[in-house]
Design a protein around this nucleic acid. Structure first.
Lengths: 358, 358
DNA sequence: TGCCCAGTCTAGAGCGCTCTAGTAGAGCGC
DNA sequence: GCGCTCTACTAGAGCGCTCTAGACTGGGCA
């Protein structure tokens, strides 16, 4: 496990500091109180920012706490107040869109005085486990980003703790939902393509991923209503780059590229873009491409993906608000907040080649 | 905030279920004990999996708990035992390599009976805040993925709680480090290129990101030792796709592409690949490319990036082990675990064009 | 002078657990 | 019968906080 020059293990480093204080238990309110010469309760008042302490005392307490490195214990506080002021957020750790959402949720939660606990869903860690961890930590409410789980499981969870789903809907379960108007977003994308003259528009599907069903359905409806049912085609896929690349290879193998492709999310769109470009097919000259989400990658100079932006700030704000509202009044029927999408036209769409008046 | 068909807000949904039990407080050990007709302490024994309960009682307790939906309260448990059995992990939420690491850390922690708490570092949320959150939740030790912070701050944290840094080293602070042998990894990549006949090798830098300094230094050393100092060139960058794309545009603008590029990580390598390909420069025929990390994206059919793999499982295992060991014996000097890299040759490297015998 | 009141501060009972010390009872050998 | 050990279980004191009820000030006012 060791190797040569520059990579030496066992870093003796510099003189390795005073021995850390870790043996001594961490300071408590009692310690702060003793130092200042007041009661524990007063220190509590100060740290809760509650009325009932003079400004002078407040300052003295704060200073003493600082000096001895006191930091309130969330566990004790939670236990005593039976309120944790913590919101649990479940995310898929490999999902760039979730990363954006998490960032926004942190900001939003801070505004309303809540802490956030993250729990990740991953290949080896199911939704059930991720949610269980949050529950054990007494989160007051859960915000699940694109949850893939059963109605039954969610039904049980929601018996104890309010749940907000960002994306998927769970009809029949007492769960609030915050999502983008998928149908509208899809139509925005397709109208844009139609406006450029496209008729031969293929959809790259998102499989079981959050929002895919709505996007697929809206695509089919739109094509039918426009009298383009004959051109309608849904390529199988999911929300990963590789599914986009696979779709590209499939089309290349068939030797028939549509004039436009509407992908179920940005990652698959980028995968498609990459694979098809590499095969010598030009975007947007040979094929126009629209994604979904507007992840940071889509904005990059060399990608410039035309896409439908989801309102990340709005989704985060509504999710946190739904959670807080639900804490205040648990009984009203589930609410669905629907946020407006916004078409972002960049460089991957243009008019189809003239010849193509299929 | 509403829109038409299919996107209706206010989802009345189906009959919205029995009113949720949320009013009733969550069940406690007391409730379980009462139901079974034993003492609270015995229930505790069962849930801690401690000796001292008959198999029959154990089963009855477990069943009763199941029935009333009891779930141990982490806060209370932490408070009572003054052990949380929780490891705090700080990650950068937009970092794909961190996503891999988190997944592996979850698995590893579970093996040793620890829970994981995640806290994200993001543009609007500094390391200090992310770490503070973990500390408040009484994590027994912290694992920081690629921390970008000051020695001073870390010095303070480590006074109270063991810290493991995955990546960066902090000489002079009592922090364990787990990292890949950056120097060796760099040399593996460069030796591979040299073996193919490359001499004109440029390095795309990672700026202040974790590991970059070592990679840059090893690159310079290697070039010098090989007598290629004249060819040595370090393009500014960081660990994002866009910096790779920028580097590509810079080289294109200069009109002089080296025969090979060694990027400081996979993301910037992929950004470079994408931008340079799109400009008509072929990889690997015109320019060979090597990345660093081996993120999932690098393996995709249409990318096939030659890269140096970091041993994610190993890093996770060592990080968790270092944390646990440090809890057992706080005083020994900081340890540095160095893990072996592994060159993964895929499709982005080949011999330079014959003409180029610079 | 007496009384009230706002402003500060304190005492002490929990919150839901863990864990030490201890009890009850069964089984055993003598 | 006794003492012994072993297993199965219980009592009760905390862990570090919050929060209600109440105590103690020093004015202000009749």
């Amino acid at each position: 496990m060791t190797s040569t020059d520059g990579d030496t293990a066992q870093g003796g480093d510099d003189a390795s500091q005073r021995p850390n204080r870790r043996g001594n238990r961490r300071p408590t309110m009692e310690d702060v109180a003793a130092r200042v010469g007041v009661s524990r309760a007063l220190v509590s008042v100060v740290f809760r920012d509650a009325p009932g302490a003079s400004p002078q005392t407040r300052a003295r307490v704060l200073r003493a706490a600082e000096e001895i490195g006191y930091r309130p214990d969330v566990a004790a506080r939670t236990l005593a107040s039976s309120r944790s002021r913590v919101l649990g957020v479940m995310l898929t750790v490999h999902n760039a869109f979730h990363a954006d959402l998490v960032e926004a949720v942190y900001a939003e939660a801070e505004r309303v005085g809540y802490d956030i606990l993250l729990s990740a869903h991953a290949r080896t860690r199911h939704t059930e486990k991720a949610v269980g961890a949050l529950l054990g930590h007494r989160c007051e409410a859960l915000i699940l980003l694109g949850p893939e789980t059963t109605t039954d499981f969610l039904g049980e969870v929601v018996e104890r703790t309010p749940v907000v789903s960002v994306g998927p809907r769970f009809p029949g379960v007492h769960v609030d939902t915050v999502r983008t108007a998928e149908g509208k977003a899809t139509r925005q994308a397709l109208d844009h393509l139609a406006g450029l003259g496209h008729r031969d528009i293929t959809h790259l599907d998102g499989g079981a991923c959050a929002g895919s069903a709505e996007r697929r359905r809206a695509y089919r409806d739109w094509m039918r209503r426009r009298g383009l049912a004959d051109h309608a085609r849904v390529l199988p896929g999911d929300h990963t780059e590789s599914s986009g690349a696979e779709a590209a290879h499939r089309l290349l193998a068939e030797g028939r590229i549509p004039t436009a492709l509407f992908a179920s999310n940005d990652r698959s769109a980028i995968g498609f873009l990459d694979a098809i470009t590499r095969a010598g097919v030009r975007v947007p000259e040979d094929v126009s491409l629209v994604g979904f989400d507007d992840i940071p990658l889509a904005r990059l100079a060399h990608i410039q993906l035309t896409t439908v932006r989801q309102d990340v700030q709005g989704l985060a704000r509504e999710a946190v608000r739904a959670a807080i509202d639900r804490l205040a009044s648990p009984n009203p029927p589930p609410r669905v907040s629907v946020l407006e999408p916004e078409l972002v036209v960049r460089g991957t769409t243009t008019a189809p080649r003239a010849a193509e008046a299929s």
